[in-house]
Amino acid sequence: MKRMWLVGLNTFRESIRKKTLYIILIFALIVIGASKLFSFLTAEEELKMIKDVSFSAIEFFGALIAIFGALYAVSAEIERRTIYTLLTKPIRRSDFVIGKFFGVSMIIFVNFVLAAAFFIGLLIFKKSPPDIQVFKTLLLIFFELILIGSITLALSTFTSDAFNIICSFFLYIVGHLTSYGKELIERMENIVMKGLTDMLYTLVPNYENFNIRDKIVVGLDVSWSYVGWTVLYGILYMCIALYIALYFFEKREV
């Protein structure tokens, strides 16, 4: 357990010192900050605008951080051959993978908290302190980001960087288009094609589940049970991704 933490902490420390992910974070903060420039709107509309833009920015830039953080975590270790020394220490390959997952989660968490804190600060500044619905939205965004990170991590145990990036972004986009996908499937006539796409649709991580911001922004409520089930879905999917990572890394020659 301690060894996993050490691997995780080391990953986290490197990402902090490397500073590349900061740039993404700074972009997120700029976008959030800029959302309040629409001062020609009425106060209520302006607040909606701030929420809408900020949620989207936290999610999108968070996804970038998750993907690049996870990508760097494993592949850099192999590319720079630091893994040779690491794996000759008394550490299991599974410790390594789970440690990397901890590390990536820490990276995501810290960047997420910074962006979210900035957003909440902005809301307070606008004399509209965040309600529980805002926190629900943020919670789901956070779990989505962790899921995105663990999928990229899993891919990095058996594919090249280039393929991994393409795949991760593809899943990110497709995972958000699932409602369109469903409509499309319903309209299909060929049974075989329908079955296949249906299966694909269930396999692809459904990131859109985590998106409740459209409702929250217009003042609708989302129940705790929905939030709970979605978090559970995220954790389940994450476990599958981790299992895949463990499976492939166990056999990998580095």
Partner: peptide, 10 residues
């Protein structure tokens, strides 16, 4: 290892 290479930022 041969030509050892370690974590750049440590």
């Amino acid at each position: 290892p041969e030509n050892p290479y370690y974590y750049d930022y440590l």
